[in-house]
């Protein structure tokens, strides 16, 4: 969680230099859901994420150097520069490169879960979506199929209350995700208190449910995006939400509260180690090599 926060803060700091040259959707403030769920997953499980994917990639222990290099468009990146921030992924951590079209990973998640069940792997698929994705037909259709076939699928709805700037109240007459899931025989639970321990215990219970063959599960986790939808800045001036709205989320920041539970000297040591790794990753990315222009032609077809 600390790594995610500090990496993204570093991205925000260097963004003005235009080293990244591509949109970034920062997860600052909403790191905890990815961290909690990934802590409870097994190595052979699969994860499907979104364009706001830095947190999931790092929580899944994706290679930090390869992520930063990817943001810099370098050939050491996890997509050799063809992916960028919006399409992080890595086969070695069971994470297909993510999509920048809302909800489009969800149908792929049911396909991955279908294959896991078909092959009788003792593995599950964790699919991360936001509350905006729930507006999309693909999410309802996917839950329908997952419930029908009792697929080993965990759906995590990171509910940050906004689709870009549009609040849920302008998008849904009855925004109850667990209730929607129930209509498709998908079990569900919500964690609304922004508490890491609650997220951890509920994630573990949800994953146990899915892994034991009882069918899919929808886990709603309330969270809050601190930064603007896309880019490194704050957006309080836009007026669609206020800093006062956000203050409970700042106060209950899972990272801050978690840090307070660690002895000060240990925390400082941890922070300096993480900062060192991050500094090294950004240094390496800067010194990395851009792909040869001829690489544009590679991987069009398999």
């Amino acid at each position: 969680m600390l790594t995610i926060r500090l990496v993204e803060e570093k991205v925000a700091v260097i963004y003005h230099t235009d080293a990244v040259k591509s949109p970034v959707h920062l997860s600052i403030g909403q790191e905890a859901p990815s961290v909690a769920v990934c802590a409870a997953l097994e190595k052979n499980d699969m994860v499907i994420g979104t364009y706001r994917g830095h947190a999931l990639y790092l929580a899944r222990e994706g290679d930090l150097d390869a992520m930063v290099a990817e943001l810099y468009g370098k050939s050491e990146g996890c997509g050799r520069g063809k992916a960028g921030s919006m399409h992080l992924g890595d086969k070695s951590i069971g994470m297909p490169h993510t999509s920048a079209i809302v909800a489009t990973g969800m149908p792929n998640a049911i396909g991955v879960a279908f294959a896991q069940k078909f092959k009788k792997e003792n593995a599950i698929t964790a699919c991360f979506i936001g509350d905006g994705a729930v507006d999309e037909g693909a999410v309802s259709e996917s839950m329908n199929f997952a419930g029908l076939k009792k697929l080993p699928l965990l759906i995590i709805v990171e509910n940050n209350q906004f689709a870009i700037h549009s609040p849920i109240s302008t998008r849904m007459p009855r925004p109850n995700f667990v209730e929607r899931a129930a209509a498709f025989n998908v079990a569900g639970a919500s964690v609304m208190d922004n508490d890491l321990d609650s997220m951890l215990s509920t994630s573990q219970a949800a994953i146990d449910h899915v892994r034991s063959g009882q069918g899919p599960f929808l886990l709603e986790i309330a969270t809050y995006r601190w930064k603007e939808h896309v880019g490194p800045g704050d957006d309080w001036a836009l007026g669609y939400r206020t800093k006062e709205d956000a203050s409970p989320w700042f106060e209950n920041d899972p990272l801050k509260l978690c840090g307070e539970r660690i002895a000060a000297d240990r925390r400082l040591a941890l922070e300096s180690k993480v900062k060192e790794q991050i500094t090294r990753a950004f240094d390496r990315a800067e010194k990395g090599t851009f792909p040869d222009p001829a690489e544009m032609w590679d991987n069009v077809y398999a």
Binding site: T104, P107, I110, F114, A115, Q116, G137, E141, F145
Partner: peptide, 28 residues
Amino acid sequence: PDRCFDTPLSEDTMTGLGVGAALMGMRP
């Protein structure tokens, strides 16, 4: 029925199902 099955009328999502299964090495 695992290797030949009818589907709900969800063309886009059912396409995505095949894509996901193909990512896992199946041939839908």
